[in-house]
Computed example of a mutant assay.
Amino acid sequence: MITINKMSNSILMLVSVVFMVLSGCSSTEKLEDTVTKRVVASDFVLEVTTPTVIGTGETMKVKGTLEYTGIKPVEVTHGKPIIRFFFSGSEEERSYADVGYYTEFKTGQVIEVEDEFMVSKKGKKNLYVDMTADIELTMDPIEILVK
């Protein structure tokens, strides 16, 4: 009975190790194709998450978050959406409202903006992130390889 338990434990351990190795490889591979860039200015933090490698004909999904880290509430005038994305690897055009919105930010408040682009041009392209607010935040373009 003792040898059967030892053998069962050994098999179970081997299966667990193989599963962990296979799981680790696939998730690590996926993370290399995605990047999160962060810019901090005054009491705001802007983070953008985007793939860095994508194929022509695929849909590229991007996400931006704007967090207020200040202590006192602050009112911000902006367009809609407050975070805008432009991708040089797509022929899609966007139409936005440039003025007329305001948000009162309180400590820890987060605004999320998601967008997607149909990828149509091969090569090294750029994702540009723009803020339409009276907040001084500038993010360098993010390079994306389109295969």
Rank of each mutant, 00 (worst) to 15 (best):
residue 121 K to G: 06
residue 32 E to A: 09
residue 100 G to R: 04
residue 45 V to Y: 00
residue 71 I to S: 13
residue 103 T to Y: 01
residue 95 S to L: 11
residue 52 T to P: 12
residue 26 S to C: 14
residue 96 Y to P: 06
residue 29 E to C: 11
residue 48 V to G: 03
residue 63 K to C: 02
residue 68 Y to P: 08
residue 95 S to V: 15
residue 34 T to K: 08
residue 91 E to P: 13
residue 87 F to T: 15
residue 79 G to T: 01
residue 26 S to Q: 12
residue 34 T to A: 05
residue 23 S to Q: 13
residue 49 T to G: 02
residue 71 I to G: 08
residue 115 D to G: 06
residue 45 V to G: 00
residue 34 T to G: 01
residue 85 F to P: 15
residue 49 T to A: 12
residue 61 K to F: 07
residue 20 M to N: 08
residue 77 T to A: 07
residue 96 Y to W: 13
residue 21 V to M: 07
residue 120 S to W: 03
residue 101 Y to A: 11
residue 48 V to A: 00
residue 47 E to R: 15
residue 23 S to M: 08
residue 120 S to E: 06
residue 105 F to E: 05
residue 67 E to F: 10
residue 34 T to Y: 06
residue 114 E to S: 09
residue 115 D to Q: 01
residue 108 G to T: 07
residue 109 Q to F: 14
residue 28 T to L: 10
residue 42 S to H: 12
residue 96 Y to D: 03
residue 72 K to A: 12
residue 59 T to W: 04
residue 103 T to Q: 00
residue 81 P to Q: 03
residue 66 L to C: 04
residue 41 A to D: 02
residue 62 V to H: 08
residue 46 L to F: 04
residue 27 S to R: 14
residue 32 E to Q: 08
residue 38 R to N: 01
residue 110 V to Q: 04
residue 102 Y to Q: 09
residue 105 F to Y: 15
residue 72 K to M: 09
residue 99 V to F: 05
residue 37 K to A: 04
residue 25 C to K: 11
residue 26 S to Y: 15
residue 23 S to P: 04
residue 22 L to S: 09
residue 121 K to H: 09
residue 49 T to N: 00
residue 113 V to A: 05
residue 103 T to M: 02
residue 42 S to Q: 11
residue 63 K to R: 10
residue 19 F to H: 07
residue 68 Y to L: 15
residue 43 D to M: 10
residue 113 V to P: 07
residue 77 T to N: 08
residue 32 E to F: 09
residue 102 Y to M: 10
residue 88 S to L: 12
residue 119 V to H: 01
residue 109 Q to L: 14
residue 117 F to A: 06
residue 106 K to V: 14
